[in-house]
Every structure is written in C-alpha cells, then in structure tokens.
Design a protein around this nucleic acid. Structure first.
Lengths: 112, 112
DNA sequence: TTATATACCTAACAAACTTAGGTATATAAA
DNA sequence: TTTATATACCTAAGTTTGTTAGGTATATAA
C-alpha cells in the first residue's frame, strides 16, 4: 500500500555523498551501508539504485572498474573530478530543501 | 534548465499543514502563502498544485465550497475529519524523512 | 490598449521511483 | 541433497508527481 519513495529525489545526492566519504564502493555495498547508517530505516531498492548509478556515470560524475571476488563480479564506483564538485552542489541543494520544508511545516527548532 | 521539483513529493503534506493552520484557503491563496512563508524561495506551479488539491479531495482529505468575489470564482478547501488525522501522519512522515536524510548526508547538528 | 494580478483548469511530457522479474555464485540449514 | 539466504549484477512495465505550456476569464494599473 505504501507508495513511498523513501528518498524523494535525493538518492543521487546520497550516493555521491557516500562515495565522497568512502572513495570506492560497489552497488550492493551501497545498499548495505545505507541500511547500516539509517539503522535499517532506509532500504534501497535495486530498481532505483542501479539506474541511478548508471545515470551518474553517464553524466560524468562517476567512473567504474570491476573486480572478481569469490568468482563474483563487483562493479566499483568512484567520483570523477566533476563528481567531486557535484557533491557540494547537491548537498547544498538538499540542505536548502530541508530548510524550506521545515519552514513550511513549522518544524524549525529555533530562529535562524 | 532547472529540473527542480522544489517540494520533492511533500506538496500534499505542505497543503494539508497550511489548511490545518488556516482552516480555509483557495488555490491561489495557497501559492501566495507558500511564497510568503518561504520568503520567495518556493514558487508553486499551478500544474502541480491544482491536481494535488483534486487528488486530496478525491481521497477524502479535503472538502470544497465556492464563493464569488469581485465577479471571480474562488474555490475554497478545508480539511475533512479524515484529513485532520492525515496531517499528523504526513508531518510525522516528513520529519522522519528529514531525519534520515540528515543522517545519510552527515548533516545532523548533534547527537540525538 | 496593454500588461499585470487574480483565479480556475488541463494535457503532453519527463523524472524518479516501485514492483517484479531475470541471471549467477557461495554458503548455511534442513 | 536440496533448499533458502546472502551476495552481486541487471532490466522493463507501470505509477506517481512533478514541469512546461497551454487555455479561459475578470479587475485594475500603466
């Protein structure tokens, strides 16, 4: 019943931020890290994650390389130089969004 | 150029919250109130607003009545009883979303 | 008479999800 | 041994929710 896009358009921002903090990650690892950080509250669906990664790569923000571990393929992602700049932009945008939403919903904890 | 869904899936929540605080509002008034509260940062597009209002009404969260003012029609919206409960749900959901996003982006100001 | 503000609306398109599949290997449990 | 779970990648159909771009109409200021 829950039509619940958990990250509401901020998935790209979260991915970029994780890659800023962890340098190199593969898709499955990202789902686990998000689950861990959010204490199990945010469960990325693969149908959202993989297309998002491919788009970020196509846009020039990520680059990839593959490794074989235990006979299984891992596709690692890493920020490009352009991607490094984009993290800052997207995080700033997310902060503004949170700020606006808190204002509109009267959730601001204190006066700015 | 800005593909900027300013409210990223929270438009319904914002509308319901405004109607909780102001009892009765019409569409155009909502756009002006959002602009005012956000200091001009959030400009609702009518193509998003009106369908959202119609959906909230169809879902039983809002009821309407019309008034003529200066020969022009105003369609007022008001929360139904069910809508009154839904505000709480949706605002709680939005708070959780903000919290999760702040955690994932390392934006949390302090430890909880 | 032209532009801006007020006031409603819809339709075509795009973005970003969910849901539901598919392929394949390693390992723990029944 | 076979079944389930974890690991690891992927895509396609459908839905929701927005943008963009129109349309109609009245009041008022330039």
């Amino acid at each position: 019943m829950s039509t619940n896009p958990l990250l509401k358009g901020t998935l790209q921002t979260v991915i970029l931020k994780l890659l800023e903090d962890h340098t190199e990650m593969y898709g499955y690892e990202i789902t686990q890290k998000v689950k861990e950080i959010s204490a199990g509250d945010v469960l990325l669906t693969e149908g959202a994650l993989y297309p998002a990664l491919h788009k970020l790569e196509a846009d020039g923000f990520l680059e990839t390389f593959t490794q074989i571990v235990d006979n299984r393929v891992r596709k690692y992602y890493r920020l490009t130089e352009q991607g490094g700049k984009e993290v800052t932009n997207k995080v700033t945008e997310a902060e503004a969004f949170i700020d606006q939403l808190q204002t509109l919903l009267s959730l601001k904890p204190a006066v700015k």
